[in-house]
Amino acid sequence: MSAPFVLTGVCHEYRPGALALDGIDLVIETGQHVAVVGANGSGKSTLLKMLDGLVFPTAGTITSFGHPLTESSLEDPVMRREFRSRVGFVFQEADVQLFCSSVFDELAFGPLQLELAEADVRARVAEAAEALRIGKLLDRAPYALSGGEKKRVAIAAVLAMRPDVLLMDEPTNALDPRSQVWLLEVLSEWKTAGRTVVIATHDLSAAAEACDRMVVLSEEHRVATDGTPFDVLAQRDLLLEVNLIHEHAHRHGRGEHAHPHEHGHLHAE
């Protein structure tokens, strides 16, 4: 079976001189949970949009499940339907992703685009609503939901398409701690189910917990390192260099010391 994504020498410039990605070589295999981490502006979101066929390389190539992923290839209705049914994207801002008049319509949008029969669409809506525990919200308008509820609906709307690959941009953003734990549990279930997941985040602790592979993007928009979370997090100097952690000086009682600091770091002392 072909890998969900193979990127070879991928570059992207939003305009001449405004580089977003530079020479990315990456293979994402089926069933992997990959965290793309990097500082703000490193190109994480652009990379995810590229994997979803929303922006395209200005140099280099991407193949998805063995097929070239280009603007022209997605104009083919068969390829587009095949690709969209297999790859789902949860956007960073749920407000952007929720454009239907009700939560029910939101969940039904994707399956209806896949031209499924009405009974199948209803079954998928019910399944996704149950999985995300949003059954009571189905008749509500998305604008009337809380931030956490919107995020759940956004994820359910993608899940209703039953994709093989899930792309999530800053999935823990705007979630309270309880919802973050819930999301990590959902990601863990997907791992068990063998689904491929790619998340873009700068939350190292969430990335380490949810993923078995970590790809670090540098501020120069290149892959700085690629490995297991254990190996990557051990490279303190590199994480400092790519601006994912910083030197943190503080006091414990009468003593003062400095150490690298990252999101989610807890002091045991």
Binding site: K49, L54, F89, V96, F99, L114, E118, A157, M161
Partner: peptide
Amino acid sequence: TADDVYDAMLARGFSGAVPTL
């Protein structure tokens, strides 16, 4: 925002029609 919403629609298979149940 309009661009982003359009991207979000494309990501979920939008091809010009918006059928509802």
